[in-house]
Simulated assay, not measured.
Amino acid sequence: MNTATTYFSTKSFESLTPSELYAIIQLRNEVFVVEQNCVFQDADNKDQESLHLMYWSNNELVAYCRLLPPGLAYDEKSIGRVVSSPKYRNTGAGRLLITKAIDLIHQEYGEGPIRIGAQCYLIQFYGSFGFIEEGEMYLEDGIEHIEMVRP
Rank of each mutant, 00 (worst) to 15 (best):
G92A: 09
H145W: 10
H145E: 04
A23Y: 05
E134K: 13
Q48V: 05
I143H: 02
Y88T: 00
I146H: 01
L51P: 01
F125C: 01
Y64K: 08
S12F: 10
R115S: 13
G142F: 00
K77W: 05
E60R: 13
Y138G: 01
I105N: 03
R150K: 15
C120E: 05
I114G: 00
Q41R: 08
P18S: 11
E144G: 07
W56L: 13
Q124W: 04
E14G: 09
S50R: 01
E20H: 14
V34H: 13
L68V: 05
E60G: 09
G71Q: 11
S19M: 12
T17Y: 13
C120V: 08
L122V: 09
G130Q: 11
V39R: 01
M137W: 14
R28N: 01
E108Y: 14
P70T: 10
T6V: 10
P70A: 12
H52E: 12
T99P: 02
D141F: 06
L139G: 02
D75P: 01
F40W: 03
R115Y: 07
Y55V: 12
S57A: 10
Q48A: 12
V39P: 06
P69K: 08
L61R: 08
G127V: 04
L104N: 03
L68Y: 02
D42W: 04
R89G: 04
H145S: 06
S15E: 08
P151V: 02
A93S: 15
Q119F: 00
D141W: 05
V82I: 03
E49Q: 14
E35D: 12
Q107Y: 03
R28E: 05
S50W: 04
E30T: 07
P18K: 11
E111T: 12
S9K: 15
M148E: 04
Y7R: 15
G71T: 12
I24D: 02
I114E: 00
P113D: 11
Y126A: 04
C65P: 00
Q107N: 14
E76A: 02
N58F: 06
E76L: 00
Q119A: 10
T6E: 15
V34L: 15
I25C: 10
E49T: 13
L97P: 12
S9M: 15
E30R: 10
G142Q: 02
F32C: 09
A23W: 03
Y55T: 09
A93L: 09
I98Q: 08
L53A: 03
E108D: 13
L97I: 09
I24Y: 07
S85T: 02
I98W: 06
Y121H: 07
E30L: 13
E49N: 13
T10C: 14
Q36Y: 11
T6I: 10
H52F: 05
A73T: 05
T6Q: 15
A4R: 15
P86T: 04
K87I: 15
P113C: 08
E111H: 12
L27R: 01
T99S: 09
L97R: 09
H106M: 01
E30A: 15
R89L: 08
K100L: 06
K100P: 05
E133V: 04
N2V: 14
V31S: 14
M137P: 07
D47R: 02
D75L: 10
D141A: 11
R150Y: 12
I105M: 07
R95K: 15
